[in-house]
Amino acid sequence: MSLTTNDQNSADEVAIQITDMNKWYGDFHVLKGIDLTVKRGEKIVVCGPSGSGKSTMIRCINDLEKHQSGKIEVLGTILDRNPKNIQAIRKDVGMCFQHFNLFPHMTVLENCMLAPTLVQGTSDSKAKETALKYLDKVKIRNQADKYPGQLSGGQQQRVAIARSLCMNPSVMLFDEPTSALDPEVIAEVLDVMVSLADMGMTMICVTHEMGFARKVADRVIFMDAGEIIEDDEPNAFFDNPKSDRTKLFLSQVLEH
């Protein structure tokens, strides 16, 4: 379903529209009036110091965190407290986590087949076919019968990406997908993400990989203290940042 809509609609169509979103943890104001529009096929990289609210923001998009005021519209569905709408959005939005969150009691293949069979009612054989296709795409098909505990971090993150892809999502969210990885395996995960971007997937990535941002992103967003400070295309963002906070952050990140 998502693939067909993807083909029919023009590139200008809005995938995600966030308007004046606020969120509090108790009395702590985490997200302060966020406005963000993401078009179909756009790749957004979100960066910023830790605690700036960037993870919280993308976790609000598929309702892992509840926003308390403002409006979020994903692929034409308004995110409210109605479980049906939440479910509809989650089916169409895939997510990869910092700690992979693979299900340790299932094999790689079972991890990939679980959601399609339970949520979409796909038959076992069809789900297996899809799962193997995407495992092939992330170059890990030969490990399909292993358990997550037997794989390296990089392999696990690639499985997690394949697991999300099996649901045929229209949007992929990445929440610091490489922060928990050893330096030598970061590249293999980034390669998979680049190939996803080349396929035209709508992506929002929270990451500190500035090389990836420069290479892939259509826009780079800098957040600090719960606000979007800067929103620009990569070349302008890196070479000519407008805000002082961005400059400071970039000098700290790019120093080494």
């Binding site: 598929n62 309702d63 479910q87 989650r90 997510m95 339970l118 997690a160």
Partner: peptide, 10 residues
């Protein structure tokens, strides 16, 4: 649990 939610499981 979050991974399950993100996949759209009930």
């Amino acid at each position: 649990v979050e991974a399950g939610q993100a996949l759209g499981l009930s």
